[in-house]
Design a protein around this nucleic acid. Structure first.
Lengths: 144, 144
DNA sequence: TATTAAATGTGGACTATGTCAACTAAAGGA
DNA sequence: TCCTTTAGTTGACATAGTCCACATTTAATA
């Protein structure tokens, strides 16, 4: 692969690290971290979500996940229900409070996106969006 | 801004968080973290680089930066030279060992990129590259 | 079926990473 | 001169993440 292309890609990676960094350090208008927010999000998106799904999807150590989930349960954001078929597994659900929090986080995230794109024209925004979809689609099919 | 567009952007952000996460947890074929690697990189790219530049560019706390730099100096990867004009400032330089390490990290990073894009056609790779440049250019001019 | 292997989750002990506030020292104004 | 800003350091602390050993349960297979 061409040096110049690799250079551009690494430059993009550095750049987008910064973008995501800014985002992620702002979730904390609530008392929760990005990781916790993503866990709530994944639980809400999945049916029959178990801890191990999250471990794989978010690349987090099992023991660490166990502790995070315990914390979220203590704070009444999620609840666990042991599977009747396989008693090793605990299905995870959001509580009402958890859903409310996720809703709040979603609103904030939308707001962040709006700020980031503020000032760009509709056609520019759409160019960016298309670009994102191209990247995701091509890399996704390839590796993830 | 349209709900659907925001949805796509957030999806991309989650996706790219994962991509960068994989990358960043592999730097550790050396004994150094991504942050340390980025610091070496920035020092090598800049002339008259001082700690405060890194603090701003990488969004890292001053005190934390101070400690990281001390560690890198102890390990003989960088050295500091006090400015003669403004004695508050320490200009940062890579040592020979630091340059060698950065070189090694660069080779590994190139390799990672190659792996990520492995299997894609030249035209697909170029599409991704163009997409990245569009995103960077538009957001960069806007915010960063 | 008996045995072994793999999956799921937990707990203890630890290291790494990051944050906050207080401080020194020098430089740049007004 | 006095006040403010900039650059960097230190101590104390908090949060995040890792490693290893372990218990249970299920799956695989000889």
């Amino acid at each position: 692969m061409d040096k110049e292309i690799i250079y551009d890609i690494r430059q993009f990676n550095r750049f987008y690290t910064k973008v995501l960094g800014l985002f992620n350090n702002q979730i904390l208008d609530t008392d929760y971290s990005l990781t916790e927010a993503r866990i709530l999000f994944e639980i809400s998106e999945r049916t029959e979500c178990i801890a191990n799904n999250l471990v794989q999807e978010l690349n987090i150590d099992r023991s660490y996940m166990s502790r995070i989930l315990r914390k979220l349960e203590r704070e009444d954001l999620i609840k666990k229900k042991s599977s009747t078929i396989d008693s090793r597994k605990n299905f995870l659900f959001l509580t009402k409070k958890g859903e409310e929090l996720l809703g709040k986080i979603n609103i904030q995230s939308d707001e962040q996106i709006n700020q980031l794109f503020n000032g760009l024209s509709d056609s520019e925004i759409n160019e960016i969006r298309i670009s994102m979809m191209i990247i995701k689609e091509k890399l996704d099919k390839n590796k993830f």
